[in-house]
């Protein structure tokens, strides 16, 4: 299972802090996962249609959209950070 986390306004708009998803046969990269989430439509469709607004971490390290994913990975989606 993939563990998926959402932070900040993504969590607000999706109405949940995260979820677990089985790794589907055709999902081999973050990009594939984004396509899968986007296909749900609604808030997912809107948010994941604009991946340029989103940052991704795979197993708690910043990753690019073409990063590979594997079963049991933790994938986090969030806006650009604004700390300090």
């Amino acid at each position: 299972m993939l563990r998926i986390l959402y932070f900040a306004w993504l969590r607000d708009r999706l109405g949940r802090p995260g979820e677990t998803l089985p790794l589907q046969g055709q999902a081999h990269s973050v990009q594939d996962l984004i396509g899968q989430l986007r296909a749900r439509g609604g808030a997912y469709g809107e948010i994941f249609a604009k991946p340029e607004l989103i940052r991704v971490a795979v197993n708690q390290s910043f990753a690019t959209i073409d990063a590979p994913i594997a079963a049991n990975d933790e994938i986090a989606f969030f806006p650009p950070v604004t700390g300090g």
Partner: peptide, 24 residues
């Protein structure tokens, strides 16, 4: 680096009740 590389997010809360996520 903390401002741009560590995952923190700020939401502003205003006197009129508005709450807005800070834009990078």
């Amino acid at each position: 680096w903390l401002k741009t590389g560590a995952p923190f997010w700020k939401r502003e809360e205003f006197a009129d009740g508005r709450r807005e996520w800070v834009q990078p």
